[in-house]
Simulated scan of single mutants.
Amino acid sequence: MTMFKEEKPVLQKLLEHNESRIAITTDMWTATNQKFCYVPCPHIEGVIVKVLMDCLSQYCLENKISTVVVDNATTNDAMMKILMDKFEKRSLMLKGDLLHLRCSAHILSLIVQDGLGVISSAIEKVRDCVSFWIPTPKRIENFEACRFLD
């Protein structure tokens, strides 16, 4: 925290004078080690927008945002509608048409989880087989002997 407190003003000054656009990715989770930005309860769109805008203002980024990447939570959809009104339209690229982007990693994770759900019984059977065959060298020998039988 000491290093953060020392470096924060340096970063703020650097970002304030930076003329480039910034793309941000944001997500919320409850974790005991998450101390970067506290979001008070309830975690509804208005509260999230206020905290995000305060954070962007601290670093002079409110007029430099190109995109905001969030997951598919309905709260994020509502948050992005409010957030769009908080930004000056002229500061947004393409009038904000690309401001709200969905996290492709989150979407891919959802697809993979659905796929794993479909094949979960087969995965369980493979795990059971592996657990049966590998505990002793004799079982491994028997398994290897069986694999060449046709």
Results as ranks from 00 to 15, higher is better:
Lys5Val: 08
Glu6Cys: 11
Glu7Ser: 11
Gln12Lys: 15
His17Ile: 14
Asn18Asp: 15
Glu19Asn: 15
Ile22Ser: 03
Ile22Met: 10
Thr26Tyr: 04
Thr26Val: 15
Asp27Gly: 11
Met28Cys: 15
Met28Gly: 12
Thr32Arg: 08
Thr32His: 12
Asn33Ser: 14
Cys37Gly: 07
Pro40Met: 07
Cys41Val: 09
Ile44Tyr: 09
Ile44Cys: 10
Val47Gln: 11
Val49Lys: 06
Met53Gln: 06
Leu56His: 00
Tyr59Cys: 06
Tyr59Gln: 04
Tyr59Phe: 15
Cys60Tyr: 08
Glu62Ser: 14
Ile65Ser: 05
Ser66Tyr: 08
Thr67His: 15
Val70Gly: 09
Val70His: 05
Val70Ala: 12
Asn72Ala: 14
Ala73Val: 07
Met79Ala: 14
Met79Asn: 03
Ile82Pro: 01
Met84Pro: 05
Asp85Tyr: 10
Lys86Gln: 13
Arg90Thr: 12
Arg90Met: 05
Ser91Tyr: 05
Leu92Gly: 09
Gly96Arg: 07
Leu101Tyr: 01
Ser104Arg: 10
Ala105Ile: 13
His106Phe: 09
Ile107Cys: 08
Leu108Pro: 01
Ser109Cys: 05
Gln113Pro: 03
Leu116Gly: 06
Leu116Ala: 06
Ile119Ala: 02
Ile123Glu: 05
Arg127Lys: 05
Ser131Arg: 03
Thr136Glu: 01
Pro137Tyr: 01
Pro137Phe: 00
Lys138Ser: 04
Ile140Pro: 00
Phe143Glu: 00
